[in-house]
Design a binder for these strands. Structure first.
Lengths: 238, 238
DNA sequence: GAGTGGTCTAGACCACAAT
DNA sequence: TTGTGGTCTAGACCACTCG
């Protein structure tokens, strides 16, 4: 396959340090001439390497080599949220609430929350920023029956703080991890390339009695961040 | 954008149950006629929905709607490995060692393992199967100096069992989570579509004194599996 | 053999960056 | 204005599956 030849050419130049971090690689038209192929073939090779997290593109400017060392490390604490150790290193965290609405559940989400279709929930979209750059998009569904008088202000800082203050205790959590290419709307919010997959977590929080306290989807921006978790002791076998 | 119109057309048919799980959607040529666009435009829409985990393709046959309910649930135990609860439900696990070699480290991996370039390691590639279907590809680097007399048999079942039996204790673990589109070689091993991202974990295991016991990369097949983690109590704030 | 998706061509027009 | 990447066309040949 011709596009694999082009992938290999670019990759070997990255691995051998000929293309260094943040260097611009040859333009699509230059690669077209070099490999004597059509532009679509060159684009396919580049798209693959973008999706593989080796290249990034700037519209109207060019294609560049990703600088992994420059990525900000986000420490995930049991994967629940940010433990803002990052703030200690001078990064400024912030949160924006994009949407805060009362909504009726569609069938798909109702099933996940073990509620009836058309049951009412609060639908919340939040974006977490570091130094003004979007890190995570969070979409949360909160059952109306549990949080009747919630306001946008309640979840502007910490959602879990709010849930705790309401008198609920999260006893267990079910998390599903996946990797997807997000829809355009999410790409725009996170300011990521159109071929860059995101790391996604879906979670459901339970009270001890089995009540569902929330259903949440998290989309992590990998363009400028890497997501690290440190585990200590009590490790089990594989 | 025309390809977004096509994406929306297909998605609304999935969401409204017109295309049901495992249904074949219209062929590329049918969509070309319906939308009066070129085939490349149709293909871009379909590729996006494959990467978004809504469609899958079978070469020579057609494009189909993903059946999420049919996905086998894999329980991740502290994300270290399989806790084979799945076997209780009739699934048969197995492991294949693809590669077991003594190797000299390249610069990139040496840096991660805080070793020198050209230092010797055991390079191990293993695939975990369930009912003969590949679930995870694992690539492990084990420092030669720690495991001099290791054999392929030692890691045919449990790597962590072996490490423990060698007298080492994993005190902490650093994990990095990401989502990438894997290279063709990995796509083939995991038998996944060429536009399907994978969930990737990189981890380094430490002894209490800071010694590095392993560097491991894990690639999870999302085609037929979903990866769930259940956490109990001791949850912290976000 | 007919239909499917996989790869590829040789053009085109556009929005966007930089000069 | 020039060069870049983003979208799109109207073809083509191929390997694969299935009846």
């Amino acid at each position: 396959m011709k596009y694999i030849d082009i992938e290999n050419f670019i990759m070997s130049n990255i691995k051998n340090g000929i293309y260094k971090a943040d260097d611009q690689i040859p333009s699509e038209n230059q690669l077209v001439k070099k490999f004597e192929v059509s532009r679509m073939t060159v684009r396919k090779a580049i798209e693959n390497l973008v999706a593989r997290n080796y290249l990034y593109k700037i519209n109207g400017k060019g294609t560049y080599v990703i600088n992994k060392d420059e990525k900000t490390t986000i420490f995930l604490d049991e994967m629940i949220g940010f433990k803002n150790r990052t703030t200690k290193s001078g990064h400024v965290p912030s949160t924006t609430v994009l949407k805060f609405q009362k909504k009726k559940l569609n069938f798909l989400i109702a099933e996940k929350m073990r509620l009836e279709k058309n049951e009412e929930v609060f639908y919340v979209e939040r974006v977490r920023y570091l130094d003004g750059e979007p890190v995570v998009l969070e979409i949360t569904y909160l059952p109306y029956s549990l949080y009747e008088n919630i306001t946008e202000n309640d979840i502007k800082t910490s959602k879990y703080e709010y849930i705790k203050n309401k008198g609920f205790e999260i006893y267990s959590m079910e998390k599903e991890y996946s990797a997807i290419l997000p829809e355009k709307k999410i790409q725009d919010i996170l300011k990521i390339d159109s071929n860059m997959p995101v790391f996604k977590t879906e979670l459901i929080s339970f009270e001890k009695n089995g009540n569902i306290l929330e259903y949440t989807k998290l989309y992590y921006n990998q363009n400028k961040y890497k997501f690290i978790q440190v585990l200590k002791n009590n490790l089990k076998n594989s």
